[in-house]
Structure formats: structure tokens, C-alpha cells
Design a protein around this nucleic acid. Structure first.
Lengths: 205, 205
DNA sequence: GCGGATACTAGAACACGTTCTCATCGTGGT
DNA sequence: ACCACGATGAGAACGTGTTCTAGTATCCGC
């Protein structure tokens, strides 16, 4: 399990390509513009020309930093997850049992995302649209989510292989339910019921 | 807007707008062309102009029958699942336990699809890209898959609400693992291991 | 058979992701 | 200070999903 410390949100080549401060600033502006547009109108509102204009870089430069719209949005999701991880780490996870703690973490994360449905739609859609060229970024996001879940299950103790498998399955269900919601087939309340049911089922003793 | 766009293609929910035989033939040609192109080059090879040309209909007509590329591919998936259901129904599902029977059905289905990876990529990608306008078709596909699983669990007896929830979770994992495979993050062998693990976990007694 | 509605054809037109071209800028080595 | 070179800016160009237009064919009630 890779450390999610690669919060740089991108690094197509090397994780530590030396960047000038101007370059770090450009990257940050791009991510911010992306999040703003996604929040306003979802996946389709994140238009590459518009992102470039808002972040004050040329279109070609945008593509140098993020080789596709999907790379861009998956990187933005890594950025958001990192914020969420920091926020969750401020206080201990409440709950007596594994189920309760995992429920708490996933519910917090889910609700935090559902509060901005357009943003969620954009990020989840990108995760699902990712092909092999985005494997590295997608793996980063999945590792971040898995860390959240495993930490809730184990409270810091070393996770077993079984734990990691459980976290994977729960993540699969989580993403699939988001898709069902995007597809207009279930409401956001039903999503949560389904996820909680899956937690109870997977983590029953 | 009174087009035959119910995209019935097949299946129980066919509201069966009356179609002339020429129209049925057009619809069939379109689906066949779609499957052929998908099989040859996956999602990106299914180009609407090419589908129209091969099925000998005008582009506008193609869009009257299937209002988007995603509608088209999801309908094609319903068509393929229907074929699979008929094939599976020919003989009884082997296996002593629920797990064994569900494993059998999902393995058969998965392998049958993995034999044509390009086609699978096209169909799964479309399912994931579906938005609310395709909800009806997607629900049709999910119901077909759920029926397959529930039948394997119950061997014809009436399913309980719990059974349906289990089938939903297994389907979620199934689709999520296909996505992981499309994303180049796991091999097709690993997919199957993961799915079987989920079956064992969800259906343990 | 006739007339009006609906379906179909052929093709142009449009939108947005992506690629390409070329001029300019900034920087590190000499 | 200068040069070489990669990074950036500005914008044209291309491909494919989708929409639109105008003319033609087909069907259905009379």
C-alpha cells in the first residue's frame, strides 16, 4: 500500500520533478479553476478552454501539466481527498466497532461530497472514465480512500490482507452506488442506505 | 418527439411501440453493426457515422432510434445479456451451494465477455458513462444481471429482499472490477479472484 | 388512389477534447 | 552580456458526438 503522501496531485513522470514556484502556482491555479467549474456545472462544465482561461495559462500549457481532462479531474479528486484526510485526522474516529467507525468515515466523506453534487459528479465520472494512461493517478486516489477505511477499521494497528480486501470491496460498492446516483437511478438517501448495508455485510463478525 | 426511442431492443420492459418490419430490421442492423465495431476496436471504434454507414441508415435515423452513443451501447449490452440468459437457461446451474452456483453463473458470464475484451470495454464503459437520460436502459441491464444472480442463488424459488440486496452488491463489485481492468490496474485473472472473494464474503452463511 | 403526416436520406453545421504551429519568454551555462 | 533551449502564449486545425436543414419516401385514414 503506497503512502498517499504524493499529495502533489500529479507527477506524470517523477514524483519529485523540480518545479519553479511559478510552476507550482500555475498548477495550483489550474486545480482551483477546475474545482470551481466542476462545482458550478459538473463534468461537462469543466471545459479545457475555460479552465485554461481562468487559470491564466495557455491551452497547450494546461495540456502539458495535465495530459487530459480525466487526468485533470482525477488529480483534483486526489487534492480534495487529501483535504478530507487532513480534516478527519484532527480528531479520533468515534465508534465502538469496526462497522461504526467505517460507517462514520464513509458517511462523513460521502456527505461532504454530496453537499456539492456537481463537484462529485465531475470527480466520480472522471474516475470511471479513466483508462490505462491514468492508472497511476487513479491508484493514488484509491489508496487514499483505502487508507481512510483501513484506518477506521484498525485504528492505527497494522492492517491484514483481509482488511485491505474488505476496504477494496467497500470502495467498489461506494463508487458503484455513486454511479447509480449519477445515473438517476437512486436518490442520495438510498445511496447511503445501500453503502451502510454493504458495510454491515462485509464487516459482520 | 414521438419517436420509437423507447430503445426496446429486447426484454421484459419492452413497451413495444408498434414497429414495421423494416423498422425492426433497421434496429437489428444497427445493433449488429455496433457489436461488430465494438468487438473490433472497443468504445472508441464505435463511431456514430460508421455505425450509420454499416447499418445502411442515415445518421439522423440512427439518432432517432438511439438518442446517443451511450444509449446505443447500453442497448447492445441488453441484447448480449439476453443471449447469455437464453444460453444459460438451456441447462440447470450446477453447484451444491449458493456460492458455487453464483460463482458458476458469474464466471461463465465474465469469461464469455472477457473472450472479447474490446466488446466488453465498449459495453462496460457505456454503462459507467450513462447519465439520467439512459436510466431506463441501464435499469433493464441491471435487472437482467440481477435475475441471473438471483436465479443462481434461489434456483427458482421466490427471492427475498435480502437476496436482491446481495445481488446488487455483487453486481456493484462486478462492474467496479471491470472498471479496474479497463483502467489497466488489474489483470483479467485478478478480476476473477476479486469477484470470487466478494461472492464468498457476501454469501457466507 | 389522394393528401397529409411521419419517417428517412444526405449532408452541412456546431461543440468540445485534443493536437499542432510558431512566435516569445525566461533561465542556466559560458 | 550572450546564446541555446526548454517552457509558455496565442490561436488555428482536426476528429468525433450531436444537432439541424431541406428534400424525398413511406405509410395510413379517407
Amino acid at each position: 500500500m503506497a503512502a498517499p503522501s504524493t499529495a502533489s496531485t500529479t507527477g506524470p513522470t517523477a514524483a519529485t520533478e523540480p518545479e519553479t514556484s511559478a510552476q507550482r502556482a500555475r498548477r495550483a491555479r489550474i486545480i482551483q479553476a477546475t474545482l470551481a467549474l466542476a462545482s458550478r456545472g459538473g463534468y461537462e462544465a469543466v471545459q479545457m478552454r475555460e479552465v485554461a482561461e481562468r487559470s491564466e495559462v495557455a491551452l497547450g500549457t494546461l495540456y502539458r501539466y495535465f495530459p487530459s481532462k480525466v487526468h485533470l479531474l482525477v488529480s483534483a479528486m486526489a487534492h480534495e481527498l487529501e483535504r478530507m484526510r487532513i480534516r478527519l485526522q484532527r480528531k479520533a474516529i468515534p465508534g465502538e466497532t469496526r462497522q461504526q467507525r467505517v460507517s462514520y468515515v464513509l458517511e462523513r466523506s460521502t456527505h461532504s461530497l454530496q453537499r456539492d453534487p456537481n463537484l462529485t459528479e465531475a470527480l466520480v465520472r472522471a474516475m470511471m472514465a479513466a483508462d490505462a494512461t491514468v492508472a497511476q493517478e487513479v491508484t493514488g486516489v484509491r489508496n487514499q480512500m483505502a487508507d481512510l477505511i483501513i484506518q477506521a477499521m484498525r485504528e492505527g494497528a497494522a492492517p491484514t490482507a483481509e482488511d485491505e480486501a474488505y476496504a477494496g470491496i467497500l470502495q467498489d460498492v461506494w463508487f458503484a452506488r455513486q454511479i447509480a446516483w449519477l445515473g438517476g437511478r437512486v436518490s442520495s438517501e438510498e445511496i447511503w442506505d445501500d453503502i451502510e448495508q454493504a458495510i454491515a455485510l462485509v464487516l459482520r463478525d
